[in-house]
Write a protein that binds this DNA or RNA. Sequence first.
DNA 1: AATCATAGCAACCGCTGAAAC
DNA 2: AGTTTCAGCGGTTGCTATGAT
Length: 495
Amino acid sequence: MSITSGSDDKIMSMGCIDSPSAASSGGNVTGSGPLKKGPWTSAEDAILAAYVNKHGEGNWNAVQKHSGLSRCGKSCRLRWANHLRPDLKKGAFTPEEEHHIIELHAKMGNKWARMAAELPGRTDNEIKNYWNTRIKRRQRAGLSIYPPDICLQALNEDQQSQNVSTFSYEDRPSPDLLLSNHFEIPSVEFKNLELNQQLYPQSLLDVSGNSLLVHSPGSFHSNNSSFAMMHPAKRLRESESLHTGLSGSLGDLFPAFNQYQDDACEKLAHSLGFSCAYDHNIHANHPSTSCLLPGSHALLNGNSSSSEPFSWAMKLELPSLQYSDTQVGSCGSPSPLPSRESVDTLIWSPPTEQMQLDCLSSRNSGLLEAVLYESQTLKNSKNSSCQQTPNASLTPDNVVDTLTQNLHRTGWEVYGDPISPLGYSAASVFSVHESISRSSTNEHQSAVTVPGFKIKQEPVDWVSAWDNGKDEVQPQMIFSRPDCLLGSNCYNLNL
DNA sequence: AATCATAGCAACCGCTGAAAC
DNA sequence: AGTTTCAGCGGTTGCTATGAT
């Protein structure tokens, strides 16, 4: 649309800030008026269109100078690119386009311009807005973003990429970059991983730091997908946010926790026959703790502005250089001082009680211990109502088998996991089907308590929640990001 | 009918890399 | 080699329309 509201009279005093020439050139052709800001009028559109049709695109500051428009070149370019270009496709995205966008986003992250290049007639701005809106919607609904076919696709590609020693950024930015050495992962993280191996089953830890990253392409996804490619200064600057992402998924720093999350979740799901849609809120007060997934693309990728519910997960600010052996240590390491949020993530599912206690006894963690204690307390308070966790003999292999069986069996027909705050772990996505598909109503509300967990299903309209019918037409299982399959959630698949 | 919340969209802003000087 | 200019990208903001209460 072309807004021609009264706000047109917003005026820039200096032209575009980052367009010195525009500013210094004195604004419009008359040199008398300051540059306008705000919505374009149809008259301005006509002038710009006429100018560009005559002189062609480019040299936008010249447009501003010679067309008589009181707009900076940058603004002209934007207007032309987003609204006046003759090849623009107007109107809502078609389902095909939407699917394509999702695919592209799964591959590229927030590379709007690149995505736009693959969607003829669509602009980066359009795609970006669409995506952000979509994220918001799904976020609100507690749904994840990516449909399963895309997750599978990403999984396949990821596996292929592991089989090929050479790779191209163009083809697969996120995971491949993580394969590269450009990314400065503190080695200590993986030293600690080794330490942790005495605490956790080897089978769960048989993942090197590198492979962990390889399997978690989304761990630093999106904003960080180009991390390795970016300017060193930017890298330095973004390292903080990167580590936010890292720590937003503490599992990357604490792989074992992720693995236990997944494993325990899987076990629970299988043993109880319902989804592992655990509720972080049992440990935290976060109203919306969805998608704190290792490598949660939804989280890191979507524009998680500070006003967004996701922002809490982004608040964890651990300066990149502050990771040290002591800080990144495993369970109970001295003063990791994670934010409460990260601890929430960390602690949602202690592997076993004994393990937890062992861990604590060997390393006094202070805050961590406190949280564990709280968790324990909560757990105990719930124990009376649900004491048993049958089928505890599940081994990782069993889990994998069952998981993969479910993968095929369910045929991806499952709706999104509306309640998994951890972002639709493998367990949740594979088993949520059980509880959902049996329901005769669209609304679910139930709460199941098991030792150490509170599996709570919040009310979600399963039909409308799927993007209010605006998204993929058919209900299907979704993930917050394909890397939920590729990540530590899924590394078992490669055992 | 009024108010509020949300969605959708357009535009702006800051930054970056490449090209030109 | 260093600086300036330009074009483009991605994140954010602000406005309007619409729906819910």
